[in-house]
Amino acid sequence: MEKKRIIPRWLAGLLVASAVLWGQASPAQEEAASPLYRYKAYEASTGYYEAYETRPRHQRPLIGITGLREGVFPYSPTAASVRNRSRLGDSHRALSFYNRRTCESCHTKASENLHSIRGNLTCRQCHGGEPIASIHHYRSPLNPIRRHAYVCSKCHQGASASYGGYIIHEPNPALASTFRTFPVLAWAFWIMIGIAGGTFALFIPHTVLWAIRELFSRDKPSKPGSTP
């Protein structure tokens, strides 16, 4: 008899607590909370998704090196140097003695950029803490699809995706390899060097010869204290 009385009281208490704590559901709450609504909102579109809206396809941990060998290298400890690290969630995964190294000990030239030298920025202020994702990893804050919003705009308010295309670690424009990696920069650099070099090559000897010729010409000396 005692058990039969307890159960209805417990159910009644649960109903009262539900009525007080849950409150009244509204359509807006349903829309925000329901996975079905969210799915329909997306699915009501064209059905086509941008690359950044979906998980990337599985990327093979095997890469080919053009001109070095046909086919692909095996993903093995002996071939670790050819692993494509630009897609890893932890770009420094499996590097030996990693915790005893600094960024500059491997990326020597990477620290020679305007942001580091003039802006006093450290690597981690842009690349984040450990594990440092590769910039092409689809969840990396430095991935070009979100770099402007997650990294650039921390200092450059209003940075757009186009602005995020500024190349922080730009190649040396004087190197021949830059014609392949950043041809516009290489051409602009060498055109400007050509103009500057041509101007100086013409006018410095011209000026020196002019001075020598005037020095030894038979002009009448100027009056003392008189200048042109």
């Binding site: 450059h156 602005y163 295309g165 500024y166 424009p173 920069l185 602009a188």
Partner: peptide
């Protein structure tokens, strides 16, 4: 640079700098 990059790619700032 923000205004400039609204109608030209960000890498053009690298070129402009040099």
């Amino acid at each position: 640079p923000i205004f400039a990059s609204s109608f030209m790619p960000g890498w053009s700032l690298n070129v402009a700098f040099w």
